[in-house]
Amino acid sequence: MEYIDVLISKPSKGSSGKTGLWRTFKPVYKEDKCVSCFECYVYCPENCISLKDLKIEIDYEYCKGCGVCSNVCPAEAIEMIKEV
């Protein structure tokens, strides 16, 4: 039996440099609305959301503003606002 090596891609912060400058919309986290489901953390395609003391932190240097975190949040604790 012959085996084939397979590479699996995982999101990694900074693989394309600091990508936060690409953003046109910024996710803003509202801690008082958060229900600690961590769906945003699980689904962030760029690995820009981290957990610290059961609270989320968004790394704006790398966040591209795709809005996935806001769309999956059942409590609407993340709002996308226009970058100025």
Rank of each mutant, 00 (worst) to 15 (best):
G20R: 01
K52N: 14
Y62G: 00
N71S: 15
V72W: 03
E83A: 12
V42L: 14
A75C: 05
S12E: 14
C40G: 00
L54G: 11
A75L: 07
A75W: 01
K52P: 00
K82E: 14
A75K: 11
N71K: 15
V42I: 15
I8D: 08
T24Y: 03
D53N: 14
I4M: 00
K82H: 12
W22G: 10
Y41S: 02
E76S: 12
I8P: 02
I8M: 04
R23H: 13
P45W: 03
M80C: 12
K64F: 02
A75V: 09
Y29D: 01
K26D: 06
D53H: 11
P11K: 00
S70Y: 01
C40M: 09
V6P: 03
P74I: 03
G17F: 08
M80F: 06
F25S: 08
V68H: 02
P11I: 06
N47M: 07
A75P: 03
V28W: 09
L21T: 12
Y62W: 10
E61P: 02
V42A: 15
E46Q: 12
C63H: 06
C34K: 04
S70F: 05
S50Q: 12
K13D: 05
K26T: 13
Y62F: 14
E39D: 09
P45F: 06
C66I: 06
M1G: 14
T19E: 07
N71D: 15
K13S: 01
C73E: 05
D59F: 11
